[in-house]
Design a binder for these strands. Structure first.
Lengths: 241, 241
DNA sequence: CTACTGAAACTACGCCGTAGATCTACAGCA
DNA sequence: TGCTGTAGATCTACGGCGTAGTTTCAGTAG
């Protein structure tokens, strides 16, 4: 057989799906999702705008690919004996990824609304399977594992959406109220919110994540045990009166 | 002074911001966010494409307006003596809104990433203030109220993002595995996920929300009391080994 | 009757995603 | 050597996009 390296590719150097996705990610990281266009991507690759279509059938598939690339950094050790502490670590890694790629977060949370689960790039499903395995190995039924997975990653999505919200209106202002622009809000209508200017200004994402994890895991421990059955609780309110 | 109704407006009938937003919402509900363009909106209003710019300075402001319109349906009774049951009701109303307008959910969760809090339409801030008031009236400090608000609405965002995920690949198939397209996934790599086909297919959003609320509120009760101070917990893992 | 004002409509620019046609350069073979 | 098939890269073109700037025009004030 002939070496693939002996015969150089048709045009300049070949290009890999990974390179395409990395170029796309770079654009998104620097300028946001809306700056990513096939033409812009082609320019970044030094190729024809249509070149990327070889590696992503469509623009939306390219977006799914960017999500996959980013999520490929999210490892889950499903052999960890302590599922709670492993979930904590996954949470911290997930947050770190989101903070490192804030402009990707909109894609991260919304692409699954558009692309059916089974058609998503496998890299985006791997953390799901690994988390399920972690929980099943810890004694949960697979259905309960699914519930916990959903609650946990829903919580993580919610956390990063909170953490990455835009708060600052006027960056060069030093007073919190003015910096966040909260003075624009009618004081009669938003008294508490306005009073929270200092708290909003000193938001600490890592600490908030830990406190959320405390609450979530403590609730989980109270409501769901690895033995497999859900407990009924006394504080559960009735749906309608 | 002259009656405003006596003097008919310059061109045909006047138009209100509310009408513009409702027309925009109708397009999004029917065909999704990406189908909403200024030209399309103009057509729906029977007006020039530029007409809508009178009520939204920019396309993104229009999107914020759609979010406001949808969130204006979300009432929070801050006088409720039982904050937990009021949060449950808010959660159910929020879910109902999301289910009624699934195509708006991407906007609902991502617009705050782009528009600074104080510049968002007031209608989107009203549930925030009302929830803070509910919690403060129940004895929480305003900073704790903010934490609970974030955790709670983060949870809700996460829930609807989970509930509205696309799962079905091949709708006319009857077998769960085939309908969800999970047979495409390599069985060695995704054994648990594939096995969960029936559970995925029979997802019940309302029930899942209640179970999530049970866990969240029970965790909240264990970790945070209206007296105001956060408790330290024994199960909290240390950051790094 | 004229001049002004403010809202509505129109025009035009540089983008976009991508279907389809075209070009290029090598592989295999006579 | 020259010919042809083919697969990949590139080009062209279409209809649509957000919106700045300009023009139109009905109503009001003087």
């Amino acid at each position: 057989m002939s070496e693939p390296f002996d015969t150089p590719p048709p045009h300049p150097t070949p290009i890999s799906r990974d390179q395409v996705l990395r170029a796309a990610l770079a654009i998104v990281d620097l300028e946001g999702v809306e700056a990513l266009s096939m033409r812009r991507l082609g320019r970044a690759l030094g190729r024809d705008p249509m070149a990327a279509y070889r590696y992503a059938d469509t623009k939306t598939a390219l977006l799914d690919g960017v999500v996959e690339l980013v999520l490929s950094d999210l490892t889950v050790d499903s052999t960890d004996d302590d599922w709670q502490s492993q979930l904590r670590e996954v949470a911290r890694r997930f947050r770190a990824i989101a903070v490192a790629h804030p402009h990707v977060v909109p894609l991260l949370v919304t692409r699954p609304l558009a692309t059916p689960l089974a058609l998503r790039p496998h890299g985006t499903l791997r953390p799901l399977e690994a988390t399920l395995e972690l929980l099943v190995r810890s004694g949960f039924s697979d259905v309960d594992a699914l519930h916990i997975y959903r609650l946990f990653f829903g919580f993580l999505d919610g956390h990063v959406l909170n953490e990455l919200q835009e708060l600052v209106d006027n960056p060069e202002e030093t007073d919190d109220l003015l910096r966040l622009g909260l003075h624009r809000l009618p004081i009669k209508e938003f008294p508490i919110l306005r009073g929270l200017a200092p708290a909003l200004a000193s938001y600490d994402g890592a600490a908030e994540l830990e406190r959320g994890l405390d609450i979530l895991l403590s609730g989980l421990q109270a409501q769901l045990t690895p033995s497999g059955t859900t407990q009924t609780t006394t504080c559960r309110a009735l749906p309608a009166g």
